[in-house]
Simulated assay, not measured.
Amino acid sequence: MGTWSREMQVCASCRYWCGKRKIDSWACSFEVIESEGICNGPDGSFRSMVMWGSSSCGEWKPFRD
C-alpha cells in the first residue's frame, strides 16, 4: 500500500483518518494496511467520506502532537 512519515500531510498520517494502518511507537511512520478509510475530521474536511491514505485536505492534523 504505502508508508508515510509524520511530516507528510496525507490522510494516512492524520489523526482523523480511520483507515487500517500500522503506526510505530513514536507515531513517526505510518504503513497503510488498507488503501481507503473513512474521514472523521471536523466540518470543512471530508468528514464521513471514504478517502485514500494518500489524500489530504486543509484540516489535516498530526496523529500525535
Rank of each mutant, 00 (worst) to 15 (best):
C28R: 15
F30L: 11
I38Q: 11
M49L: 12
E31W: 01
R47D: 11
S35N: 14
G37Y: 09
P42G: 13
S35D: 14
S56Y: 04
S45H: 13
R47P: 01
A27P: 01
F46M: 06
A27I: 01
V32D: 00
S25R: 06
S35Y: 10
M51T: 04
C28F: 03
A27W: 05
G41A: 10
S54Y: 04
W26I: 03
E31G: 01
E34G: 02
K22A: 09
C39R: 07
V32I: 06
S29V: 11
G41N: 11
P42Y: 03
S25P: 05
G19W: 01
S54I: 02
S45Q: 11
W26Q: 13
K20T: 01
K22V: 08
V50R: 14
W52A: 13
S55V: 02
N40T: 07
W26R: 08
V50E: 12
S29E: 13
C28G: 14
E34W: 05
S48T: 14
I38H: 09
I23P: 03
M51P: 04
R47K: 15
C28T: 15
S54R: 02
G19P: 03
W26P: 02
W52G: 11
C18L: 10
R47E: 06
W26F: 07
E36P: 00
W52Q: 12
S54F: 05
E36I: 12
E34R: 03
S55T: 09
I38P: 03
S35W: 12
E34T: 14
R21W: 05
E34H: 01
S56V: 02
S54D: 05
N40W: 07
S35H: 07
S54G: 07
C39L: 08
A27L: 02
V32R: 00
G53D: 03
E31R: 13
S29T: 15
S54T: 03
F30H: 09
M51V: 02
D43E: 14
E31Q: 14
M49V: 01
K22N: 11
M51S: 06
N40A: 15
S29W: 04
S25L: 02
D24I: 06
D24W: 01
E36V: 15
S29Y: 03
G41E: 15
R47T: 11
G44M: 12
G53C: 01
G41C: 05
G37Q: 06
I38F: 07
E31K: 03
G41V: 05
E31N: 08
M49Y: 08
R47V: 08
E36C: 15
D24E: 06
S35R: 13
F30N: 09
E31P: 00
G37F: 06
C28W: 04
S54M: 04
V32K: 00
G44T: 07
F46G: 02
S55P: 01
G41W: 08
W52P: 10
V32P: 00
R21Y: 05
G44S: 13
W26A: 14
E34Y: 10
S35F: 13
V32W: 00
R47M: 09
I38N: 09
K20G: 00
S56D: 14
S35A: 13
